[in-house]
Design a protein around this nucleic acid. Sequence first.
DNA 1: ATATGTTAGTTTCAAATGAAACGAATTTCA
DNA 2: TGAAATTCGTTTCATTTGAAACTAACATAT
Lengths: 169, 169
Amino acid sequence: MEEIPEDLLRDAEENGPPASAAGGDPVLNLEGFLPYRLSVLTNTVSRAIAGAYSKRFGLSIPEWRVLAVLGRFPDISAKEVTERTAMDKVRVSRAVAALRRKALIKRRTDAQDRRFSILRHSERGHRIYEEIVPLALSYEKRLLDALCDEERHALDAMLTKLMGKARDL
Amino acid sequence: MEEIPEDLLRDAEENGPPASAAGGDPVLNLEGFLPYRLSVLTNTVSRAIAGAYSKRFGLSIPEWRVLAVLGRFPDISAKEVTERTAMDKVRVSRAVAALRRKALIKRRTDAQDRRFSILRHSERGHRIYEEIVPLALSYEKRLLDALCDEERHALDAMLTKLMGKARDL
DNA sequence: ATATGTTAGTTTCAAATGAAACGAATTTCA
DNA sequence: TGAAATTCGTTTCATTTGAAACTAACATAT
């Protein structure tokens, strides 16, 4: 049994402090706040996609990302995977270990610099990759059905700009 | 010491399986894939903001969200907080407990239905809220400096459309 | 050479997370 | 009534996460 501080369980007294303390106080409404909206949209989208391949193929999001980037760039190192997936090296290391355990990727060691790994799909890994890609693209396509062609281009440009701005705070 | 499967540590043999198996295989390039781009942008933005208030005020992201939604909607229940923050009830429960521990919010029990809580800023909580809001708004403003006024409107509309689409997959 | 520093990748440890089980209050319906 | 079902919020437990420490390989400077 866990000890629980008594006063944490008690209710507060009635009669409140600031509900909206008079003057023109600054207020933030979350539902219109860009970082919050981005977060909600992203989580919704990520969950939907992850649901598709985690159930069917037993892959976590980091594992899928590694598989995805190796589909586009075979024979890169874990270091390069971190750069291309925006995941930190711990996540990449664990995803790579998991994918190797499942025999979905293979690793060699760079002969020139033996600190570097060289990663690549296994046959099975590649088959799974080729099964998932159309699912992912189809989801993206359906999501973008919400926008017209012109909007899609605008969104593309804006995401690039926002990302650039976000990088240097 | 942890036992490590021998074959996981061995390198794969040279000569590879599919690097790009001939035919017009489907390929997905992450850096252009909308869900991925959203994820990277969101994480960058979230970290930047969280860094600002977690260091200065010792708040986690869930805690800040609860504080934020209570700034806009005082005297709502934890249930309503989950709806307005898109966080699940476990996260909200823990964030509320943490905020109460820090004496930044107060809780009463709804007399009509005693399952419901009624949450509200404490004096200190409200002061901290009023300190953070300008920081958050300023960050959002600087981020949106990347876009012109017309783009900002377009982005607003598109996020709404995308969110709607994402909700029904 | 040998010491010092740097980099790729792994491991450890403590904290955050979420699914499922739970207790308490309320509602539904026979 | 009162038994079964539902809902709010908490807790438990196993998994995921990331910061920091670490190992191994390489680079640089003395």
